[in-house]
């Protein structure tokens, strides 16, 4: 009975969404804001990647809210899991290939992570993607050597520093008489590495924050006690 109701619910919802979607004009978005942003983004933010100028310029407060949601969920996951380091030593070590592969990949992944973060205003990519790659880079050695431990204090220091600098850059814009988090210092060098003013700095803060958060989350997850 219960499963029938569930199937009926899911099917009905799918039908409703399909009916709504059939009325939409696919391929011709009715939103006017998109074309407005396209027309003005290069002058107003100086970033070649328009998604970046939306994320960090036009909707930067949303990004700040998103960062706080991520922070809240990481903190509460750590809170729920608790502090347990008992089984870290009892797990089997990775083999030779995993260990040396982890050591070999670490600098490469750090490089590509920072590359993606620093080029977020020019090419696809940015703080979120690069931050995830940084977290993976810190997690790989942990997978190879389960006894190794990330330094949680420095991770939370990096995270707090990155979050604070994101807000400080926004406040600095207010000090200049602009709106909170409004892009500043825009040079007329579209497509260069040094362009788009404060946007790369904001993306660097986002990347460090996301990376540190996810790395500490993963290490906490791997160090949790396994059930007997």
């Amino acid at each position: 009975m219960g499963s029938l109701t569930g199937l009926l619910f899911a099917g009905g919802l799918g039908f409703m969404l399909l009916a709504v979607a059939s009325g939409l004009d696919f391929g011709a978005p009715p939103m006017l804001i998109g074309s407005e942003i396209q027309a003005h983004a290069p002058q107003q933010t100086g970033a070649a990647n328009i998604v970046t100028s939306v994320v960090l310029g036009y909707r930067a407060i949303d990004t700040l809210g998103e960062l706080s949601i991520l922070f809240a969920s990481a903190v509460s996951a750590g809170l729920v899991l608790g502090r347990r380091h008992t089984t870290a030593g009892t797990q089997t070590k990775g083999g030779f290939i995993l260990q040396s592969g982890g050591s070999l990949l670490f600098p490469l992944m750090m490089t590509i992570g920072f590359y993606i973060i620093f080029h977020g205003h020019l090419t696809p990519g940015g703080g979120f993607q690069g931050g995830v790659i940084l977290a993976a880079a810190f997690f790989l050695p942990l997978l190879a050597r389960p006894g190794a431990r990330l330094h949680h204090k420095s991770l939370s220091l990096i995270e707090g520093f990155a979050g604070a600098s994101f807000i400080l850059i926004g406040l600095f814009a207010m000090l200049e008489g602009k709106a909170f988090l409004q892009p500043m210092l825009i040079q007329d060098t579209l497509g260069q590495l040094v362009s788009a003013g404060t946007l790369p700095l904001l993306y660097l803060a986002v990347g460090l924050k996301v990376g540190a958060e996810l790395a500490s989350l993963l290490s906490r997850l791997i160090q949790t006690e396994a059930p007997q």
Binding site: P29, M31, I33, G34, S35, I37, Q38, I50, V51, S53, V54, V55, R59, D62, T63, E66, I69, L70, S73, F128, V132, V210
Partner: peptide
């Protein structure tokens, strides 16, 4: 293409 929904989805994936 419209960049606004893309920016929205970008943050939604990470959340």
């Amino acid at each position: 293409v419209d960049p606004v929904p893309q920016a929205l989805v970008l943050t939604a994936i990470v959340i």
